[in-house]
Amino acid sequence: MELNRRKMLVLGTAGAAVTAFGALPAFASATEDAIAKFTGGADVGEGGVELTAPEIAENGNTVPIEVSAPGAVAISVFADGNPTPAVATFKFGPLAASQFAATRIRLAGTQDVIAVAEMQDGSFKKASANIKVTIGGCGG
């Protein structure tokens, strides 16, 4: 193939476009931002948090989930495929017998749900679960 000036220009533009897209924040970054807002940018470790959710949710309008993190002061739940990733934040008071809560959430589609717990010592732990959603729950 003969590389003339026009072809070089086209190639160059395409290359630049690819680079620009690569530099754009990834799709999940809204979730990362939301998590960073909760943790204040601290490192988030694994373990110590349990997130119970169904593997397959037929109806994304009500997906039952349970979070549990012994010794946590707060647990925040995020859904990375929703238009707004934040789901709920549970703060446990002195009379909470355990750091456990169950609720029902909306999921727009198949995605990861992430639970981030703030421990008493100020560290953060997370757990995530992939939930397959048959019918989305955001009223498309």
Binding site: A88, K91, G93, L95, A96, F100, T103, I105
Partner: peptide, 22 residues
């Protein structure tokens, strides 16, 4: 005395349900 304090976002389902221990 506080037991639980939940901040809810639009992703909570219709007829919000909560279960917890006190």
């Amino acid at each position: 005395e506080n037991v639980i304090d939940v901040k809810m976002e639009p992703a909570i389902s219709t007829n919000p349900f909560f279960e917890f221990e006190a």
